[in-house]
Nucleic acid binder design. Structure first.
Lengths: 169, 169
DNA sequence: TAAGATTGACTCTTCAATCTTC
DNA sequence: GAAGATTGAAGAGTCAATCTTA
């Protein structure tokens, strides 16, 4: 195995080596893949939150805002938001509370279900979502430093992983 | 574009379509890759925490324990733990507090630096780390449902991404 | 009885401020 | 003054319990 001659040390590659040395070779690839995903998420989340800070948004709330802006009526039942974003009902309540406090979203009663509540994006919310997306596209999504082909491969591999994990039905 | 005929609906593929429709095609692949990583991390973290629950460990604390068990002396300065795991000093303090409360780790003064503290793994910590790893290998790392070749590709792609993000020097 | 939403308790993370030692 | 570590406050996530309505 050749080591990159520049001072590059990868903790995950090191862990993989340890796994093999301890007789867990069969799980070493999976360990390395899982740990890589965890670390990449951490880095990307920090970048995203940084890009969104000027808009007083977090990535979680940005996702909610984009989901609403893409919905055909500009509003969705809170439960459906949680489904699509795969987060707890409690997290949705929290996110909508903050978005509502910032006047980016309004709560409305669900006309089809007296128990339900709709989250409806406001004009201000649409405007902020557009601006935030420009920032996200420039500072995060277009700044990953990987060629398009690699990004598509990554998407495909992770889609398989999500499918195997029971996500995506 | 062909739709899988079984009821498979992928929110991320849908978002990618929206990105293209809104004139953000140049960033669509990056958006899909980033969102995929976020979602995959969420799923894997839930699986990991589930597998570690019988041991009263979280993934964060499990990583600390493994790092210490692999270190040559069985102990490391807290600062180095944070470096390797890429987490805040405050998070390290918290994790070590819990591990110490469970008698899996002991704090010791750093003989080479009066300001510093070492985290040293105990025999109990080593034993629990071994058992937890068997569970993680079986329920998570070997249960991803992807062929070894795909896992290696995933690792390589994410290593490139981490490198471009300034991780990994 | 079940489903939609909210609340409160707890965990984990980050940030700013602080304390000790170099 | 700078570095290692800790503390307290705030954000965001999960879980269990609760309230209202179907």
């Amino acid at each position: 195995v050749s080591e990159s001659r520049s001072s590059s040390f990868d903790p995950i590659a090191e862990a993989k080596r340890q796994w093999t040395d301890h007789g867990w070779a069969a799980a070493a690839e999976g360990m390395a893949a899982v740990t890589s995903i965890m670390r990449a998420q951490q880095l990307l989340l920090a970048q995203a939150d940084g890009a969104l800070r000027p808009f007083s948004l977090t990535f979680a709330r940005y996702e909610v805002l984009m989901l609403l802006s893409f919905s055909s009526r500009g509003s969705l039942p809170l439960g459906r938001v949680g489904e699509r974003l795969q987060v707890n009902p409690a997290s949705v309540t929290n996110a909508i509370n903050r978005l509502e406090a910032a006047a980016l979203v309004r709560r409305e009663p669900n006309p089809f279900d007296g128990r339900g509540t709709l989250a409806a994006i406001t004009d201000l919310g649409r405007e902020l979502a557009r601006e935030a997306t420009l920032a996200m596209n420039e500072s995060v999504f277009s700044a990953l430093g990987l060629p398009e082909r690699a990004l598509n491969e990554l998407f495909a591999l992770l889609r398989d992983l999500r499918r195997a994990a029971g996500d995506l039905t």
